[in-house]
Design a protein around this nucleic acid. Structure first.
Length: 508
RNA sequence: GGCCCAUUCGUCUAUCGGUUAGGACGUUAGAUUUUCAUUCUAGAAAGAGGGGUUCGACUCCCCUAUGGGCUACCA
């Protein structure tokens, strides 16, 4: 039975790299009939950000990623917030000390900083490891009595893992294959912190994954360097035989390929890097894909393709399609640059195939904000005319406003180009034809007016663009006749009359 | 600096030893269109470099280069 977890830290908004990790975990779980768990890793009390957890829950919901078990839905392994599980971890840390695989260290932050500074001054890297641990104030070199006294009088301590010396740690990664690291290059990581009396990520992660019976750990590549630590931790705890399998995902890079994508890139690109708008109580906010007009289905489709391909040429896929084809061995090994252009194109694909009813539902509230009364049927019809011109949901209003509001000003460039010579006079004659119609039907109106223009030998482009200018106020939109049919005869007549009244009749 | 990971068109990728190295975004040129879009057609565009292994390497191995990640009582 497959059990995977997405385990973010509530330190701010979840950026698209995190969402993609969640997505891959979710796809993997669904593909194997498994369980997708949401666990909050809030063991860094110093970086906790109020509202971040709620943001994560809402973001997953918007993406259509359904949590089976975890924070906000509960489950058999509750609680799923590590801060609420704090008493669990100390037990395992002290167990490791008892076994001799970990030890108490009493160095102060100042002492460590001094040590680090001295090493750096000598041009060497500082590592808290086998070479130095015997020379520091640790339980390794103390008498039992001395240790008991320090522990008893409340002296601050951390528990560090005693990384073995010169051992080849052989690991398996589902995406990268075998990875081997010599343990002497690793340091004695802190497992349990003195400051907030909470475990570090490494301990809490291993303990919870074990307790929650996680079968596969799918996480970002930034965790690969700590995989050896996790391996030896599982071994020390006696859990090697049930330890999960690991898959380290390639990173999502900045568009220029220089480094991991970050919040600042969003500002620089003028493009969202978060699923939802983020408005923290303090600090800077950030825009979201949702608010920028992306459809959730398009968003996850775009994200899924950043580092995974089903093989072959398929690109536009629903969540169900992706579940059916997802497998970790088709995840690529190299980092993927985020491409705003491709993201926009995918969204346009989804938008063009959205139903008019769905788009109208989005547009109606915007119309209400502009105090526009329109029937759902009318709005749906308008959506059918504008959607192929839209890339983002937010384009809809700009593309459709002239169907609801007569132009109050006219695009000067278009005026300069077409509202000249005899064109206004020709338009006045078109007006008479339109006036004579009871109703406007696209095909018949087109036939009638085109015939007139041809028979009178008038310039087709000049007349039609002038007509469009009077109707729309710009050189955009569907066929003039479709527009007139939508607007209705009365409104069409009014708009042509208004243009003839407002714009100068001729420039002779 | 040390350790680890990676490397196919500008970008995302397909290829799992034998292909004219395919697709998509973007881009260029056309067509369609009264406009803006859409759509369609065509084009340019890639295996980092050097060694091996092999009858044959983009594909396997090694070295170099380049890029990235990690190197906290952060995750």
């Amino acid at each position: 039975m497959v059990r995977v977890r997405f385990a973010p830290s509530p330190t701010g908004a979840l950026h698209i790299g995190g969402v993609r990790t969640a997505l891959y975990n979710y796809l993997f779980a669904r593909a194997h009939g498994g369980t997708f768990i949401l666990r909050i890793e809030d063991t860094d009390s110093g970086r906790f950000v109020p509202g971040a957890e709620q943001y994560i829950v809402e973001a997953l919901k918007w993406c259509g990623i359904v949590v089976d078990e975890g924070v906000s839905v509960g489950g058999p392994h509750a609680p799923y917030r590590q801060s609420e599980r704090s008493e669990i971890y100390l037990k395992y840390a002290t167990e490791l000390v008892a076994k001799g695989d970990a030890y108490y260290a009493f160095d102060t932050a100042q002492e460590l900083a001094a040590l680090r500074a001295r090493k750096e001054a000598a041009g060497e890297a500082f590592a808290y490891n086998f070479q130095i641990r015997e020379k520091l104030r640790t339980s390794l070199t103390m008498s039992p009595g001395e240790l008991e006294e320090l522990l008893g009088n409340g002296t601050q301590y951390v528990i560090r893992y005693k990384m073995p010396k010169d051992e080849q740690i052989v690991m398996q990664d589902l995406i990268r294959g075998q990875v081997i690291v010599n343990s002497s290059t690793l340091d004695d990581k802190v497992l349990y912190k003195s400051m907030d009396h909470l475990p570090t990520y490494h301990l809490a992660n291993i303990v919870d994954d074990h307790l929650m019976q996680i079968t596969h750990v799918i996480r970002g590549e930034e965790w690969l360097p700590s995989l050896p630590l996790h391996y030896v931790l599982y071994r020390s705890l006696g859990w090697s035989d049930t330890q999960p399998q690991f898959a380290h995902l390639p990173l999502i890079l900045k568009p220029d390929g220089k480094g991991k994508l970050s919040k600042r890139d969003g500002d620089k690109l003028g493009f969202a890097v978060f699923p939802l708008q983020w408005t923290p109580e303090v600090g800077d906010g950030a825009r979201g894909f949702r608010e920028d007009g992306f459809l959730p289905d398009a968003f996850i489709n775009m994200l899924a393709l950043l580092g995974w391909s089903p093989g072959g040429d398929r690109e536009i896929m629903t969540m169900e399609d992706m579940v059916a084809d997802f497998s970790l061995d088709k995840v690529s090994r190299s980092g993927a640059r985020f491409d705003p252009d491709k993201a926009r194109w995918i969204n346009a694909e989804y938008l063009h195939h959205s139903s008019d009813a769905f788009l109208a539902e989005y547009l109606m509230p915007i119309l209400r904000e502009h105090h526009i009364e329109a029937s759902v049927a009318y709005v749906e019809h308008v959506c059918s005319l504008v959607k192929e011109r839209a890339t983002l949901l937010t384009d809809l209003w700009d593309l459709s406003r002239f169907y609801f509001i007569a132009p109050t000003e006219y695009d000067q460039k278009v005026v300069a180009k077409f509202w000249k010579g005899d064109n206004p006079r020709h338009l006045a004659r078109i007006l008479e034809i339109v006036k004579a119609m009871d109703t406007i039907q696209e095909q018949t109106a087109q036939a009638t007016i085109h015939d007139f223009i041809t028979q009178e030998g008038l310039p087709m482009g000049g007349v039609m663009n002038t007509l469009r200018l009077s109707l729309v106020g710009a050189n955009m939109g569907a066929s003039c006749f479709a527009i007139m049919e939508t607007l209705g005869q009365k409104e069409s007549v009014q708009r042509i009359e208004q243009a003839l009244k407002i714009l100068p009749m001729n420039d002779n």
